[in-house]
């Protein structure tokens, strides 16, 4: 396959960026999208040029590190897939592909296609945990967990924190991420003691980081590689409003 790549290049956080055009002319349809970029980078290195910086780690679709906006869609055209699991057979010979970094004030660009997603870590630090006694592991099944609730918690816990929700949201909102993290603990008995405190603290941190407000476009749900449903956002809205209107 022969492709024309339009790639965002930016030398550092404060440098101005620009779109640059690269020809990729020996792409196999069996390559993953990141392998295609590896090949392009090999050639750039041979030519003595700076390779394109992009985030990647497990390349198995489970770590949440890769993060590319491909033709205006986070993680590209395949549903429920991270960009490392996207294969070139999804594209046609002769295609032009626009590759951009996640764009949000809360995700500053470090270099080229790499953004700093530390805002997500700070939201987790604010309340995305349960406090447990250390020491010996408790016996299994000491706390009964309702099966439906545990399934729901698992659905939410599938979030890998990649940030595609923020990148795809017309408002740069992090609601789907925060909602998933609030829900996966909120649906378990272990998460109940800190439930109110958690949702208040995480939403407060989310606002502080400069993410936008959700206006229910559901673009996040459409691009989420783990297909986290929008209902968790509704749940978080309810949890937050309930906690915020309760007596302290």
């Amino acid at each position: 396959m022969e492709l024309t790549l339009h790639v965002w290049r930016q030398d550092g956080p404060d440098s101005p960026g620009r779109m640059e055009i690269y020809k990729a002319d020996d792409v196999s349809s069996d390559m993953s999208f990141l392998e295609m970029l590896d090949v392009v980078n090999e050639r750039l290195l041979e030519e003595g040029k700076e390779p394109i910086a992009f985030d990647h780690d497990c390349r198995e679709g489970i770590c949440g590190t890769c993060s590319l906006m491909i033709n205006g869609v986070a993680h590209g055209p395949e549903e429920g897939t991270t960009v490392c699991q996207l294969h070139m057979r999804k594209f046609k010979d002769g295609d032009s592909i626009y590759i951009e970094p996640w764009r949000a004030r809360a995700f500053p660009i470090l270099r080229d296609l790499v953004v700093d997603r530390g805002a997500f870590d700070r939201i987790i630090e604010a309340g995305g945990y349960v406090s447990v006694a250390t020491g010996n592991a408790p016996d299994a099944n000491t706390i009964p967990v309702n099966r439906d609730e545990s399934e729901m918690a698992m659905d939410a816990a599938a979030c890998i924190g990649c940030g595609a929700c923020v990148a795809s949201c017309p408002n740069g909102s992090a609601m789907l991420f925060v909602a998933a993290k609030v829900a996966h603990l909120g649906h378990l008995p272990q998460g109940q003691p800190e439930r109110q405190k958690r949702v208040l603290a995480m939403v407060e941190q989310m606002d502080k980081e400069g993410f936008g407000y959700c206006t229910n476009h559901y673009e996040c749900e459409a691009v989420c590689p783990k297909e986290i449903p929008r209902k968790f956002i509704a749940e978080m809205n309810r949890d937050y409003l309930k906690a915020g209107m309760a007596a302290e």
Binding site: M69, G72, Y98, E100, E221
Partner: peptide, 10 residues
């Protein structure tokens, strides 16, 4: 803004 604007279901 994105150079290539896109939307899936908004």
């Amino acid at each position: 803004a994105y150079v290539y604007p896109g939307s899936v279901q908004s």
